[in-house]
């Protein structure tokens, strides 16, 4: 069996580039929603042992707010949009047109608004993936949780854990000019999906 994680440098580059276009779309969408400039970094593509994934977001007991979506289609996977609690509160304030510091806990309205942001980011991100791969990729309804990073990441890692010991993670960081937004966006293809995506891209 060929290990789907054995990517050539050119294939890794291709994944990074697609991630870059996807994240660019998402940053534009986010910046329109909150009406401020959003910066993003060049996506990081990492293939790491699954037990190390929580360290990407500051360790397993870091308190975070996460929007989780499943990706449906021929290359299924999971999407997580993760933020530190304070940033999630700022984002809720921005979305509701309130001064920063108003949100002290996530009520139904803020939860719904943050989920919608996750939805829009995922839609624009997956749009780029679908475009480059010709594989239709659709996001599920978003779900939100505020808890320890390790606990939240469990759900994504389980799927992978059943098949192997490694994960490919495409990670992008979004930052607002006033530091109010600081979110990590993760796309984690399910086992088997990475092979499908790489094949569709057609890079050797």
């Amino acid at each position: 069996m060929i290990d789907e994680f054995d990517l050539t440098p050119a294939q890794l580059d291709a994944m990074r580039e697609i991630g870059n276009v996807g994240a660019g779309n998402s940053a534009t969408a986010l910046s329109q929603i909150v009406n401020k400039k959003i910066d993003m970094n060049v996506p990081k593509v990492s293939i790491i042992p699954i037990e190390d994934v929580p360290d990407l977001v500051g360790g397993p007991d870091t308190l975070i707010v996460a929007v989780f979506l499943r990706v449906y289609g021929k290359a299924p996977g999971s999407i997580l949009f993760l933020m530190p609690k304070e940033n999630a509160f700022f984002l809720a304030d921005d979305l509701m047109g309130r001064p920063h510091g108003t949100t002290q806990e996530l009520d139904e309205m803020s939860i719904s608004a943050i989920k919608e942001v996750g939805n829009i980011l995922s839609g624009s991100y997956l749009g780029a993936f679908s475009h480059f791969t010709n594989i239709s990729m659709l996001p599920s309804i978003p779900s939100l949780a505020m808890d320890m990073a390790g606990a939240i990441l469990n759900i994504v890692l389980l799927q992978l854990g059943q098949m192997g010991d490694r994960a490919m993670v495409i990670e992008t960081k979004f930052l607002a000019e006033d530091d109010s937004i600081n979110g990590h966006f993760f796309l984690v293809p399910d086992p088997g999906s990475l092979g499908t995506i790489v094949k569709a891209v057609g890079v050797e």
Partner: peptide, 12 residues
Amino acid sequence: PSTLISYGLGSC
């Protein structure tokens, strides 16, 4: 007198 600790269990 050791203590063993594991952080951030969800479904685990």
